[in-house]
């Protein structure tokens, strides 16, 4: 490996070792949370709703839960990791190394991305296992390429968002505010647990103004083949949003905004 490759792998290993060391909190808790959503909503609400657009209710919500798990974990991992290191000033060890802003940004981004990937994969496997055991449902994958593209873009988008909030944050309250008051409402109101087609106005239009709605639709389309929005347009806009956020973050790392004095 070249020096640059060793450097990047070390930066990334550091990010992964952080969440791996506290895996009960960073992997166990989110996995349990998603499992409870599937159990509670699937069992309780599913017995009344029966089906949505031809799919069993529990099957209809699982794609959104997988996306939500990736999004929230990618975001919270990166925002917390950067802020913690800023508080301890441990980040100075990376900042005073020969690593470039691009290497630093990619390593910080991929830490959360990989944590989200791990939890989403485990969520998918758990859901598949649950459905297999119950024998009533199955989780199809109708458009694997769209699904992979959507999940990767969503994961990278929320990783970048986590980096942005972590860099800008000055206290832990800033991170929890962004997660509790902005991110989670957007995700929950984006249609993880319901179809916007069932909503009366003005809630349907309001849902359509929520960017997360299009992300959930993309992932649901990948799994179930059902969508309420244009797949091509949603993918295109998501790719543009990811690129824009990455550019902003790269600028922050290059100028050292709230990282260097």
């Amino acid at each position: 490996m070249t020096e640059a490759q060793i450097r990047f792998v070390s930066l990334l290993r550091r990010e992964c070792s952080r969440f791996w060391k506290i895996k009960r909190q960073t992997l166990g808790a989110p996995l349990l949370e998603t499992f409870l959503y599937i159990s509670v909503f699937g069992a309780a609400l599913g017995s009344r709703v029966k089906s949505l657009h031809g799919y069993d209710y529990v099957v209809f919500i699982v794609p959104g839960l997988i996306m939500m798990a990736w999004a929230i974990n990618a975001f919270s991992n990166n925002s917390s990791s950067i802020l913690q290191q800023k508080f301890q000033r441990a980040i100075d060890d990376q900042l005073s190394s020969p690593a470039s802003p691009l290497e630093l940004l990619l390593a910080f981004s991929l830490g959360g991305f990989l944590r989200g990937l791990l939890i989403s994969t485990l969520t998918f496997l758990c859901a598949t296992a649950l459905f297999a055991v119950s024998g009533d449902h199955s989780l199809p994958v109708h458009h694997p390429l769209v699904l992979l593209a959507a999940l990767f873009l969503v994961g990278f988008f929320f990783s970048q968002l986590g980096v942005l909030v972590g860099v800008r944050a000055e206290q832990f309250d800033d991170v929890s505010f962004a997660q509790t008051f902005i991110l989670q409402p957007l995700i929950f109101l984006g249609g993880v647990f319901y179809s916007s087609a069932l909503l009366p106005e003005p809630y349907r239009t309001l849902t359509h103004l929520n960017p997360v709605y299009y992300m959930i639709n993309l992932v649901r389309y990948g799994f179930l083949g059902y969508t309420e929005a244009s797949v091509a347009l949603s993918l295109g806009l998501l790719a543009v949003a990811v690129a824009a956020l990455f550019t902003v973050n790269l600028r922050l790392f290059t100028t050292g905004y709230k990282l260097r004095a």
Partner: peptide
């Protein structure tokens, strides 16, 4: 400014990695 999550060995290992060792 030590990283509280890392062991002593990891602290040195990661630092060496940042410098391409």
């Amino acid at each position: 400014n030590l990283d509280h999550f890392l062991t002593l060995e990891e602290t040195l290992d990661f630092h060496g990695g940042y410098f391409g060792m």
